[in-house]
């Protein structure tokens, strides 16, 4: 009886020990996640605009469940002096962030200047190559779709062997046009370039090439695209029944036919994933410049109707935004 009891007792003890051991073992595996210190991230945005806010929203969503805590979101209000002061304050605070997310060019350049050893992720920087944003602690997400992707879509839209014109300031977007040279040759486009150095040269340049082109490619060049020139270019192209393709849905709203641009929310989520990777592996401080994960195609149906282009095949695309 006693032996039976002892045997039963042993089994209970053994089972209890097994559970204890199993629990301890489980605890030991999960401890880094449960007991690890929460990573802090500071978000700096250049100014308060919807596109930046969408990216930040995506980042916030992406950080959930990744042990990443967003300490604060700073708005530089587009003011360089104020921005410097704010970033200096962040740098001088007692609780330094583990990672900084810079949204916009002003934020990216100022953060890069002040934080030399903290991992930085930038996004929503238009034509980032111009601003020398590479660094050992910098990872970025390009806000432009690759030139090859853009021309692939254009080829699908217009067909091959078309004359595509571009007006650009070589000091600002010469690198993009150089790449486009290579891509257009590969995709059998006849690429017609026209250089300008000031806004006043844009209208004559357009007049010069308007009769030679089948479509105009508008790249993010601040010399070419201004509030006044954008309307004039759109109007002229529509008068000639020629399409504009670009990388900004705002330009599509102004009269361009099509734009290929990143989905800003998804850009934020992509940034969150990169943040997780960088924070999980302290030895990795930079992942280089990444292309956006998800693109969206914005089409202006009204423009298509004026020009006489059938967009039916594109309308079935999952990431198409139709305007108006």
């Amino acid at each position: 009886m006693i032996e039976k009891y002892l045997h039963k007792r042993n089994i209970q003890i053994f089972t209890a020990l097994w559970f204890i051991l199993a629990f301890l073992s489980q605890i030991s595996f999960l401890s880094p996640q449960i007991f690890a210190k929460e990573n802090t991230v500071v978000i700096v945005q250049s100014q308060q605009i919807a596109a930046y806010n969408e990216a930040i929203k995506g980042f916030e969503e992406g950080c959930k469940g990744k042990n990443i805590s967003i300490n604060a979101i700073y708005n530089l209000n587009g003011d360089a002096d104020e921005g410097k002061r704010i970033i200096q304050d962040i740098k001088d605070s007692k609780h330094k962030p583990d990672l900084v997310l810079a949204v916009g060019i002003l934020a990216a350049t100022l953060v890069k200047e002040q934080f030399t050893d903290t991992p930085i992720i930038f996004c929503m920087v238009i034509n980032h190559r111009r601003f020398n944003l590479e660094g050992t602690n910098i990872t970025g997400i390009s806000s432009e779709v690759s030139v090859e992707d853009q021309f692939t879509i254009l080829k699908e839209l217009l067909g091959a062997r078309k004359n595509v014109g571009v007006i650009y300031d070589p000091a600002k977007t010469g690198n993009i046009v150089s790449e486009a040279d290579r891509v257009t040759k590969k995709l059998e486009f006849n690429f017609i370039k026209k250089e300008v150095t000031s806004e006043s040269e844009v209208a004559p340049a357009l007049k010069n090439i308007i009769d030679k082109i089948d479509a105009l490619w508008m790249i993010p060049d601040s010399t070419v695209i201004t509030k006044t020139s954008l309307n004039a270019i759109s109007k002229t192209l529509l008068e000639h029944h020629l399409p504009i393709f670009c990388t900004s849905d705002a330009i599509v709203k102004a009269g361009a036919l099509v734009s290929v641009s990143p989905d800003y929310v998804y850009t934020g989520r992509q940034a969150a994933r990169i943040a997780k990777t960088l924070l999980s592996n302290p030895t990795t401080t930079s992942l280089g410049i990444k292309q956006p994960d998800k693109l969206k195609l914005t089409l202006n149906t009204q423009t298509a109707e004026i020009i006489g282009i059938n967009l039916t095949s594109f309308q079935s695309h999952p990431d198409v935004v139709l305007y108006p």
Partner: peptide, 10 residues
């Protein structure tokens, strides 16, 4: 550049 970005981003 931020003004330009704002213009392009809508």
């Amino acid at each position: 550049e931020e003004a330009f970005a704002a213009q392009l981003l809508g």
